[in-house]
Simulated scan of single mutants.
Amino acid sequence: MEADAVRAPERLEELSRLLEEKTEKQIRIDVRQMEKGRRFEDSFVDIEQQIHMELTIEEQE
């Protein structure tokens, strides 16, 4: 998703509300945009290495 689309206050509010409904917890959302030419793996931790449970990853086509 494009960072500017998600960064809009109404989108952040909607996303936060949906996550809270699903998880029953408040989740802080931090929207960041990667610099051109940078790889995701170089900037962010692999969440699968941090969460010790099975994850299902759905690829978007």
Rank of each mutant, 00 (worst) to 15 (best):
L55Y: 00
D42L: 11
Q49M: 14
E54I: 06
D4H: 01
G37D: 08
K36Y: 02
L55E: 09
L18I: 12
L12P: 07
E14M: 12
K22G: 15
R39C: 10
D46L: 11
M1K: 01
L55I: 07
E59G: 07
K25M: 03
T56V: 09
I57G: 13
D42Q: 12
R11G: 14
L19F: 08
L18V: 03
E14K: 03
R38N: 02
L55M: 07
H52Y: 15
T23A: 04
Q49K: 03
P9H: 11
S43P: 09
K25V: 00
F40M: 08
E13S: 02
G37F: 03
I27F: 05
Q33F: 00
I29T: 10
E54G: 02
E14D: 05
F40L: 10
A8V: 02
V6G: 01
L55H: 03
P9Q: 02
E10M: 01
Q60S: 10
K25E: 00
G37S: 07
G37T: 14
H52I: 13
E61K: 14
T23Y: 05
E24V: 08
E20N: 10
E41H: 15
R32V: 11
Q26M: 01
Q60P: 14
E48F: 07
A8K: 13
S43D: 09
M53D: 09
M53N: 08
R38I: 09
I27E: 02
E20G: 04
H52L: 13
T23L: 00
K36H: 13
E21H: 10
A8I: 05
E58N: 13
I51N: 09
R32Y: 14
E48D: 01
M53H: 12
K36R: 08
Q33M: 04
V6M: 05
E10R: 10
A5Y: 07
E41C: 15
E10Q: 11
V6P: 00
L12W: 00
L15A: 03
E41Y: 07
D4K: 02
E21I: 05
M34F: 07
E2P: 12
A8C: 00
S43F: 09
I47R: 00
L15I: 03
L12T: 07
K36S: 03
Q49I: 04
L12E: 06
V45Y: 12
Q26R: 12
R7Y: 08
R39Y: 13
A5M: 06
V6A: 00
R28F: 01
A3E: 07
